[in-house]
């Protein structure tokens, strides 16, 4: 692992909000291999809990269709808190990216996810 990656891993956390356990865990493993620190939440409500109690991540990767609190509700809640509203959000969902055009996200990816493109965007913000 090179010096740059070590530095990012030490200081840059990515929050993965995804209800699909396998998707979330595998994506987190990939992000760890890419040199980031990844934390996960299975829905918007748990993600908000994490944000209230931990250091802020440099990027949030957000699924849209989730139980309890879906991606749209979570994003709306983020925008109402000044500190949280500025965190870059990248949507990864099975639904059309046009559905998030009003959410003010950095980028919307459709599943199956293009990992290389995702990592490239993350590096622009972390």
């Amino acid at each position: 692992m090179n010096e740059k990656k070590r530095q990012i891993m030490d200081t840059h956390t990515i929050l993965v909000v995804e209800d699909e356990d396998e998707s979330r865990q595998v994506l987190m493993q990939i992000l760890e291999l890419e040199g980031f620190k990844a934390v996960g939440a299975p829905n918007g409500a748990e993600a908000l809990d994490y944000l209230r109690s931990s250091d802020l991540p440099c990027v949030i990767i957000l699924d849209l269709l989730m139980p309890v609190m879906d991606g749209r509700q979570f994003r709306t809640a983020l925008l109402q808190v000044a500190d949280l509203a500025t965190i870059p959000v990248i949507v990864v969902s099975a639904i059309d990216s046009s559905a998030v055009s009003d959410l003010g996200v950095v980028k919307a990816f459709r599943k199956p996810l293009d990992i290389d493109a995702l990592v490239k965007i993350i590096r622009e913000h972390c």
Partner: peptide, 9 residues
């Protein structure tokens, strides 16, 4: 798409 995504990941 969901399981295909996991497969892909």
């Amino acid at each position: 798409r969901n399981p295909l995504n996991v497969f892909h990941l």
